[in-house]
Amino acid sequence: MADTSRTMIVWKRRLPGLIMTMPAVIVFTAMFLVPTVLGFVLSLTNWNGFSLNLTFIGFENYLRAFENPRSVDAAIFTTVFAVVTTVVCNLVGLALAVLIAGPGRANTVVRAVFFYPYIISALIIGFLWSAMLAPQGVFNSILANLGLPSIPFLTDPAFAQTSVIVTGIWAHYGFSMILYIAGLKSIPAEYYEAATVDGAGPWARFKNITVPLLAPIVTVNIVLGLVTALRVYDVVLALTAGGPAGSTETVVFQILKNSFDNGKLGYGAAQGVILLIVTAVLGIGVTLARRNAEKKVAD
């Protein structure tokens, strides 16, 4: 009797907390946690997307993902895309951030000009660049007007892959730059003053003050850059639709094509699980590896 009334009191105290957390927990569980677990389950089946009956086929989908040349090529291109865009976005972003981190109206305007593609949908960016680079597009019209031969920006595999990568960089380096500017603003000016008094030149100051103190931002930029780039899809769909001859298909492109165009959702789910594992390993791996670089600063 006393026991039940005590539990009653405890529950009454906990009730507001429960009411405040439960809606979020329920939505998140139903639409995120359950699907994540279900993704592993579906990857072991040959689900076609419509029936709710599942036949388990073991790890066949995974074997197929590793054996199918199409999906292997997609994985290779996605990796190249992720590494190249991340490296270039960081180098360009940092260089420009150093140039325009200071206050002033001109710097603010330039910052907005470099950054604006980031807030436009990647799909629209893809269509815009497709209009620029298509065989009858703007750039080839300009070349033709100048009496020059046309360039197969989107119709030759190597050119098309380069076009996708360049478009990715064009749209994304501004974001790296913005993060670097935020980082630069947080470095106390006294450090630079002290270094100048000690006779350090601009390059020495950049190398010995800016770079080490930006280490945490570098980590964030690399992790975010890689994780975002590994999911690249919209821009490819609009720019090349995966072509020519599948040369610009990415992992997510494969996942969605297999799942929704070919009705092999089990196979798509397996590729999704692989992507999830690669993303998690890379994200955690880079963060741990960078921890050393960040530690050096703290010492």
Binding site: M31, G39, L230, R231, A269, G272
Partner: peptide
């Protein structure tokens, strides 16, 4: 850390 596209297929099921 979980890409949205990975949960998308199972979410269709749910």
């Amino acid at each position: 850390f979980i890409p949205g596209q990975v949960t998308l297929i199972p979410v269709v099921f749910v």
